[in-house]
C-alpha cells in the first residue's frame, strides 16, 4: 500500500511539474490564459502553448522517465548501484550518430534528420553489443563490451571535432552534446514516442526476474528466470529508451544514475518496484531541471545536461557520504 502511495505521490509531482513547465517561458502567460489557450489552440498564444511549450513539457517527462526506468533496470540487472543507462554504450553511440549528422550537414535536411541519425547510432551500438557479448554470456562481458563501444564512439566523436574545418559546426556539436529540450516540436515527440513505448513494454515485465537476480544469477536461473531472454529484453529496451532520449534531447547525464539511488530506500530496495518509481522520479527530476534552466537564466540558454550534472554530482556525493557506512 505504501508503494501505491509513493507512485501516486510521484505521479502527482510529475503532473504538477508538467503544468508549471507549460506556464514558464519568455512569453509571459498567466496560468488561466495559458491553459485556456492550450485547450482551444487559437491565436498566437495557442500556437506558443501547443507547438512550443507542450512538446517541451511532454519531452521532459518522456526523456526523464526513459532515463530513470532504464537506469533502474540496468542497476537491477547488474546488481550494482553505480550502473547507469549509458553503461552499455548506447548514449555515446547515438551521440556519435547525431554528431556525424551535424558535421556532414545532414542534420539540416529535415527536423528529424538529427534524431534519426542518433537512433541509427543506437541501433549500431546494440548490434555490436549483441555480437560481442552474445545472447548468452556473463554480465561482465556486457559491461566490458559497453565500455569498449563507449570508448570507440567517444573517440570518433573527438575525431569529428578534431578534424572539423568549420568552427560553427564545432560549436553546434558541443552545444548539442550538452543536452537541451528547447526548440523541440511535436515532431520530436512523435518520433520518440513509439521507441519509448516499445522500450517501456520491454522493460516492464522484467521486474520479477530482476528481483530474483538479487540472489545471484545461479539462484535466479534455478527459480525459473530465463536469463538469456531477460538480458536480450533489457538490452533492447534500454537501447530503445536511451537511444530515443538522446536523439531528441542530447546527452543528459546523472538522471539514470541518481534517481534509482534516491528512490531505492522508499521501495524497500526491490528492483521490480524501483522500475515504475524511477520512471516517475526521472520525469519529475528532468522536468524540474528543465524548468530551472528557464528560470535561472532565461536569456542565456543554460543547457539542461549541464544543470543535471551540476546538481546531480554533488547530490550523489552527499548520498555516498550518508550511506558510506552501509555500503562497506
Amino acid at each position: 500500500m505504501r508503494y501505491r502511495a509513493l507512485l501516486a505521490f510521484l505521479a502527482a509531482i510529475v503532473a504538477g511539474l508538467m503544468v508549471v513547465s507549460l506556464l514558464v517561458g519568455p512569453a509571459g502567460v498567466g496560468p488561466v490564459a495559458g491553459i485556456a489557450a492550450l485547450v482551444d489552440g487559437k491565436g498566437a498564444l495557442g500556437l506558443v502553448m501547443r507547438e512550443i511549450r507542450l512538446p517541451r513539457a511532454l519531452l521532459g517527462a518522456m526523456v526523464g522517465g526513459a532515463l530513470g526506468v532504464s537506469g533502474a533496470a540496468m542497476q537491477g540487472f547488474l546488481r550494482n548501484p553505480l550502473a547507469e543507462p549509458g553503461l552499455i554504450g548506447i548514449s555515446s553511440s547515438s551521440a556519435l550518430g547525431a554528431v556525424i549528422a551535424l558535421q556532414s550537414g545532414f542534420a539540416a535536411v529535415s527536423v528529424l534528420a538529427l534524431p534519426g541519425a542518433a537512433l541509427a547510432g543506437a541501433v549500431v551500438a546494440v548490434a555490436l553489443i549483441l555480437m560481442l557479448a552474445g545472447p548468452r554470456g556473463p554480465s561482465l562481458t556486457l559491461i566490458l563490451a559497453g565500455v569498449a563501444i563507449s570508448a570507440l564512439a567517444g573517440s570518433f566523436t573527438s575525431l569529428v571535432l578534431n578534424l572539423s574545418p568549420n568552427p560553427f559546426a564545432v560549436t553546434e556539436i558541443v552545444f548539442w552534446m550538452l543536452g537541451s529540450l528547447s526548440d523541440r516540436s511535436m515532431q520530436h515527440v512523435a518520433m520518440a514516442a513509439p521507441f519509448m513505448a516499445v522500450g517501456a513494454l520491454l522493460l516492464a515485465p522484467l521486474g520479477r526476474g530482476l528481483d530474483a537476480l538479487t540472489l545471484g544469477e545461479d539462484a535466479a536461473e534455478a527459480m525459473g528466470v530465463r536469463l538469456t531472454r531477460l538480458r536480450l529484453m533489457l538490452v533492447l529496451g534500454t537501447a530503445a529508451l536511451v537511444g530515443s532520449a538522446v536523439a531528441v534531447a542530447g546527452a543528459i547525464g546523472f538522471v539514470g544514475l541518481v534517481v534509482p539511488h534516491i528512490l531505492r530506500p522508499f521501495v524497500g530496495a526491490r528492483p521490480s518496484r524501483l522500475l515504475a518509481a524511477s520512471a516517475l522520479g526521472g520525469a519529475a527530476m528532468l522536468l524540474s531541471a528543465d524548468i530551472a534552466v528557464r528560470i535561472i537564466a532565461p536569456e542565456r540558454d543554460l543547457k539542461l545536461g549541464v544543470l543535471t550534472a551540476i546538481i546531480g554530482a554533488p547530490f550523489f556525493l552527499h548520498l555516498i557520504w550518508r550511506t558510506r557506512g552501509q555500503i562497506a
Binding site: 546488481r79 538479487t214 545471484g216 531505492r264 524497500g268 530496495a269 528492483p271
Partner: peptide, 8 residues
Amino acid sequence: AREVAWAI
C-alpha cells in the same frame, strides 16, 4: 555463494 545484492 551467499549473495544478497540489495538491502531488501
